[in-house]
């Protein structure tokens, strides 16, 4: 069986690094505010001087909240037919950054708020050339079943 070619849904937002998957953002050197995606300037009104530098975020965080996308989402979101509902989450990363994400979970009803989650990069659909299109997702660290 051949590996399917994988492409990211968009460039510059996430990467597989030597240390594992990371979100690519930035941080202000002056006030330490984290940003995702990368920001050209610091938005913190209390910050004295915007000094942005690239920063990677992840992989650990806790699930602040989540929801299920029960109906097929409008464009530009894409999905494979037949549509299968997926879960989305709002995750508080250990670095003080709150991000939205797809959730990587088989049983959508098993997600529990405040659960520890870990970043992963996984496909969301296959494009017209058969390539797997990937995005960032979070996966609960241990099974919450039972």
């Amino acid at each position: 069986m051949t590996m399917h070619e994988r492409i990211p849904v968009t460039e510059g937002l996430f990467a597989e690094t030597a240390a594992g998957p990371r979100l690519l953002g930035s941080r202000c050197r002056t006030c330490s505010t984290p940003y995702f995606p990368r920001s050209l300037s610091c938005h913190n009104p209390e910050c004295g001087e915007s000094q942005m530098e690239d920063a990677d975020f992840g992989p650990r965080g806790s699930l602040w909240s989540c929801a299920i996308q029960n109906y097929p989402p409008p464009l530009p979101a894409r999905y494979e037919e037949p549509y299968t509902p997926y879960a989305v989450g709002v995750v508080d990363l250990d670095e003080g950054l709150r991000v939205v994400a797809r959730m990587s979970v088989d049983d959508l009803d098993s997600l529990q708020l405040d659960a520890e989650v870990e970043l992963t990069i996984e496909p969301i659909y296959r494009d017209e050339d058969g390539r797997e299109v990937t995005t960032w997702k979070f996966k609960p660290l241990q099974s919450t079943a039972k």
């Binding site: 849904v9 968009t10 937002l13 995606p37 929801a67 299920i68 996308q69 989402p73 409008p74 464009l75 530009p76 979101a77 999905y79 997926y86 989305v88 939205v100 994400a101 797809r102 969301i124 995005t135 960032w136």
Partner: peptide
């Protein structure tokens, strides 16, 4: 735009 493209989280979600 990125939020919908990469995550797919419209208003109701």
């Amino acid at each position: 735009h990125l939020r919908q493209l990469c995550v797919g989280m419209p208003g109701p979600a």
